[in-house]
């Protein structure tokens, strides 16, 4: 059970890394925010699995705070995005497709 939890936590970390491709590509700021949401859910799962594998119940608290913060961050983003959230960014250092 312990090693299984650790392995699954590692694979989940890998899916987060893959999700970073969407953050890099965008094309819109909202697409980037979506990836952050994905991390929110996946990171909570990783924290819970790590907490179980290492017998540290305090990880549950970390996961709880993470779940709350993700929600606050995402709502703040939507409320604050007064500029057209669908327009592709004009960053000079934008990653070309």
């Amino acid at each position: 059970m312990t090693s299984l939890s650790l392995i699954v936590a590692l694979i989940l970390l890998l899916t987060i890394a893959l999700g970073l491709i969407r953050v890099l590509r965008g094309p819109t700021p909202t697409d980037r925010m979506l990836a952050a949401q994905l991390f929110g859910t996946t990171a909570v799962a990783i924290l819970l699995l790590l907490g179980f594998a290492t017998h540290s119940p305090v990880m549950t608290d970390v996961a709880l705070v993470f779940a709350l913060l993700t929600a606050v961050a995402a709502v703040t983003f939507v409320r604050r995005a007064e500029v057209d959230p669908m327009a592709p960014e004009q960053d000079v250092d934008d990653v070309p497709d």
């Binding site: 949401q37 929110g40 909570v44 709350l68 993700t70 929600a71 709502v75 939507v78």
Partner: peptide
Amino acid sequence: LVLIAGATV
């Protein structure tokens, strides 16, 4: 919490 946050967002 994650469910509510995800659906709302």
